[in-house]
Structures are given as C-alpha cells and as structure tokens.
C-alpha cells in the first residue's frame, strides 16, 4: 500500500535530512548547500566503543527534530534527567519524545528480583502464604520491551526521526534473530515513510554474523573510533557504507565542543 505524502510536507522536508548540524552535513556530502546529508528513508548504523561519542551523536541526531511530535529518542542506558541535562547544555529542543527503556526495565526487573530475594532469604509470612494461596495466576510476565520498541517506531508518521541508543540492551536480553527481525520491520517503515532511523551498537555486543546482518540492513554505516595521539584523544568516525553515494565514504575526525557538540574537523575521502 503506497503512502500519499502531503505536498506541503514534501516541500518542507525535502529529499534530505540533517545528520545533526549544518557543518556536519556539508562535510559529509562535500557540498556547501544547507540541504541535509541523509536521504529521507535511510537507516543509519553507528557502531564503536564506549567513549567514542556515539551516545552524544545519537542525541545530536535527534535534536534536529523537524517535527518534535514525530521525533523519538529511545535510550536504554540513560535516565530522562541525564538526557535532559545534555539537551539543555547544547540548547537543543527539549520537546522531543524521549523513552528511557533501560530505566523502565531496571525498575520493573529490580523490583521483582528484590521481592524474590526477600522470599528466598526471609521466607514467607502468614499473610504472604494466604495471599499466595489466593493467587491463581502469575502476574503479567516481563514487559516485552522489544515489541514495545518496534511499536514505538512503527507508530511514527511520515518524515519521522527515530533514534535507538543502543541495540546492546536488546541483543543481550532477547533472541538476536528476533531483534534483527524487528529492526528489519523498523527499517522498512523508515523506507516507506521517508523517515530517518539511527541505531547505535557497541563493538563486541553482537556476533560477527549479526553485525554483518545489521550492516546489510542499514543504508549508512558509521564506525566511531577513539585513539590516543600523544596525550590527546583522537576521535573520528569512519563512513564505511553510504548506499548509492560511495563518494561519501570517508574518515572524519571530530571533536566535541560546548557550542556544537560533535563538530567535524577534517575529512579524508576514500573513494
């Protein structure tokens, strides 16, 4: 079933969306125009080690928020307050939709584990036993966060912007095949609705075969690296894949500035 896009939206959103900053867009595409660098409908995979800047990149990507109602940042490792403080620091819009699944999961699971721990160590009181004898059904099982994730993204409308930071949470708790399957669904939704989907994942968090599958699903693949140069940290991203635009394959060094967060400095094209 094809989607009828509103002509005003087509004009407003155009064919390209921003990666997070105008400077970044220009360096990525090599054009001076302020037209964005990521084709609408693309999915982006950002991988790397801890401290390489992926989580800041993810927030920056979401901060573009052409339509805050249609933009969502799903974080699995930070609290809402932590995310809000970063957005305030860089003066990014704070009215985007944020979902802290990691926080929700911990609350739910830890509460349950604490109760189980108490019963195992301290035993049951008489009122516990009476309640147990009257309880005929197991309370709602684990909330299926994976299905929830897919539902959140696929409920977004045309020209949406969604960020999932990071996939590590899902791959460590769910069957990897199921996670990848859900990602395909989200990728297809992005493609059909001219949305933009950014996924982050740590190196070593997934098997090589899964990593290859992710790289095949996503239209753009970026690898974040951090190394030492002398006494300084040297951060860069490697654009390993850019569907239909091999000229955009590049090594981009960047630094984090208080004004613009991730700020590219140099670019060395591969092709």
């Amino acid at each position: 079933m094809s989607i009828n896009f509103d002509s005003e939206d087509e004009e407003y959103y155009g064919d390209m969306g921003s990666i997070g900053s105008v400077k970044f867009d220009r360096i990525l595409t090599g054009t001076p125009h302020n037209t964005g660098s990521i084709p609408r409908g693309f999915s982006i995979l950002a991988s790397g080690n801890a401290g390489a800047g992926m989580d800041l990149f993810a927030k920056q990507f979401a901060s573009v928020a052409e339509d805050p109602e249609n933009t969502i940042l799903i974080s699995t490792s930070e609290t809402s307050n932590e995310i809000l403080s970063v957005y305030r620091k860089y003066d990014w819009p704070t009215d985007i939709r944020v979902r802290t699944m990691g926080e929700e999961y911990n609350t739910e699971v830890l509460t349950r584990e604490l109760a189980a721990s108490r019963y195992r160590i301290e035993g049951f009181t008489l009122s516990d036993i009476q309640k147990l004898a009257q309880t005929r059904f197991v309370e709602q099982k684990n909330h299926d966060f994976l299905t929830d994730l897919a539902t959140q993204v696929t409920s977004l409308g045309p020209y949406f912007r969604a960020v999932i930071d990071s996939l590590d949470f899902f791959y460590s708790r769910f069957d990897p095949a199921r996670v990848t399957s859900m990602l395909r669904i989200m990728q297809a939704h992005a493609q059909r609705n001219r949305g933009l989907l950014l996924l982050t994942v740590s190196d070593q968090a997934v098997e090589k075969s899964t990593e290859r599958e992710l790289m095949a699903i996503c239209d753009i693949v970026m690898e974040f690296e951090v190394g030492m140069r002398g006494s300084d940290f040297d951060t860069r991203m490697v654009i390993r894949r850019f569907r239909n635009a091999p000229e955009n394959l590049a090594f981009i060094t960047f630094r984090v500035t208080p004004e613009e967060a991730i700020t590219p400095e140099t670019v060395e094209r591969v092709a």
Binding site: R112, E113, A115, A116, S117, Y119, R120, I129, L132, A133, T135, R136, F137, V138, E139, K141
Partner: peptide, 16 residues
Amino acid sequence: INVFDMDVLFSWLGLD
C-alpha cells in the same frame, strides 16, 4: 485446604 499454583510460587521466588 490451601491450594497453591507452583507457577505462581516460582514467579514469587524468581524461579520462572
């Protein structure tokens, strides 16, 4: 007569 469901007991003990 107190009737208990084992799956409920397991759930309470984190044994599911």
